[in-house]
Design a protein around this nucleic acid. Structure first.
Lengths: 256, 256
DNA sequence: ATTGACCTTCTCGTTACGTAAAGGTTTATA
DNA sequence: TATAAACCTTTACGTAACGAGAAGGTCAAT
């Protein structure tokens, strides 16, 4: 209950080496609370908390210099930072899931149960690229992100079983039919249109591992912007694409 | 469909830099299939597969030199290696889950919904500690009770939720307290001592998948024989270890 | 009083690349 | 057909985040 730790004590508690703590002191990332009369580093509760923050960021692969900047920024707020952490960790876990899926697919491929394209072989490794993109283009990336997601879903599509595929096509037909019926009512917020939007969500979940309102809405917008999609939907009924987008925007709460 | 790639092509496909590929060539980790007339590196399907393996190992933090040794070993079998990979990745995900739980706990602590001990603050960072523990104590326990039990106990430990873990720690404290009270009565066969022994059984069941009287009794004897355990229990109260063993021997029916 | 387990600073080494520099090759286009 | 853009090559130096000593001071207990 002393709440004061020497290098070794703190290090073993945190599962790191004492050298690491000295290094963090050296670069000014984590300075001890005080120095004892004999020159020993003494860490207090504030340092314990800061170390915890440091390790959080480290697991995300953030460089120490950046961690320093982040923690020392006057705008730094531990709570919101932690919530961002949680988000990042969840993303990391999803990426891990992708990798695991990839390993399992590779096993299946070796055992001859299915085949794999070269691009497919590297799925799940591209975390860095995604991060870079996110940092570079920020929010603007949504269109491109959507495109990549579509590609991925196409790949996954190839992996479906016969039964799944039939159900998938069936659902696609019902979506079109329902949207057509809804279009006749003219109300994208109406019951029928919302039912169709929900079917569309189910259809997405078929090939998409993770559903989010934002992506769903973004995709709907893309349908309108991309003439390939517009052609596909409007072939069934002119004006269907726009109506579909409006219904989905309402469904996802992006529009009243 | 050419199945032949230049550095850049392969690099962008795998989500790494071309420099990385040149480096891998330099250290002999991944040599191109052939060199074109103009000196360009050309990679074929075999190299693609090898790169995939390399990246699998890299995500696990294996050093490149070790990866080379592993892949070049005549005993190397891609299939079993992949199955090990899957296992490791699943472990990594569990560790991530622990970390996420930790972040959420920290958020709750900041919001004042609960408090956190210093050791608790680093839970989830300590993959290394589990390994150390395995090296220190694993061998001895393994010798006595077999690899299976230890493996299972570690697995179960890793699978515990934060809440379960707290209950587990809580139980450990209550055991000590109850045994201390029982020691005051001086009777290892008395009601209080038997209650404590039962708590100890519950505690064991937390991490041990299969309970048996024999193992329970054997463990109690080990507590006395092994000075590390003796030191731990006697620190609370001299003579506690012996008393604890006697109580458990009676509880398990190994002694009248 | 001595042993062993701590602590200190200082220095050098390592891993896995990033980042030019200086130059040859291929391909698209004007 | 010229010329630029976009590839490729080797060489060589820089870096991040420590690990691993060496050489020596300090603390607690026997």
């Amino acid at each position: 209950m002393a709440m004061e730790y020497t290098v070794q004590k703190l290090a073993s508690m945190a599962g790191i080496s004492s050298r690491t703590l000295r290094y963090y002191d050296e670069i000014g990332l984590l300075k001890p609370m005080r120095i004892s009369s004999s020159g020993y580093r003494i860490y207090g509760p504030a340092e314990v908390d800061r170390l915890q923050q440091i390790l959080f960021y480290r697991t995300l692969g953030v460089r120490l210099e950046s961690i320093k900047d982040i923690l020392d920024a006057p705008s730094f707020d531990a709570l919101t930072a932690l919530k961002e952490h949680r988000q990042k960790l969840l993303e990391k876990r999803q990426q891990l899931d992708l990798l695991i899926a990839n390993v399992e697919k590779t096993i299946a491929a070796i055992e001859g149960r299915c085949s794999m394209s070269d691009t497919e072989k590297f799925r799940g490794f591209k975390q860095r690229l995604i991060e870079e993109n996110e940092q570079k283009y920020g929010e603007e990336i949504r269109a491109k992100y959507g495109d990549e997601a579509v590609n991925q879903s196409y790949e996954k599509f190839k992996n479906m079983t016969e039964d799944q595929y039939r159900e998938y096509e069936n659902l696609a037909e019902r979506i079109i039919e329902t949207f057509k019926a809804a279009l006749a009512t003219g109300d994208p917020g109406g019951e029928l249109a919302q039912k169709a939007a929900d079917l569309h969500r189910q259809w997405l979940s078929f090939t998409w591992s993770t559903y989010s309102k934002e992506v769903h809405a973004g995709l709907a917008q893309m349908y309108v912007d991309d003439e390939r999609f517009t052609a596909y939907y409007d072939r069934h009924q002119p004006g269907l694409t726009q109506f579909l987008r409006d219904a989905i925007l309402i469904y996802t709460g992006m529009k009243k």
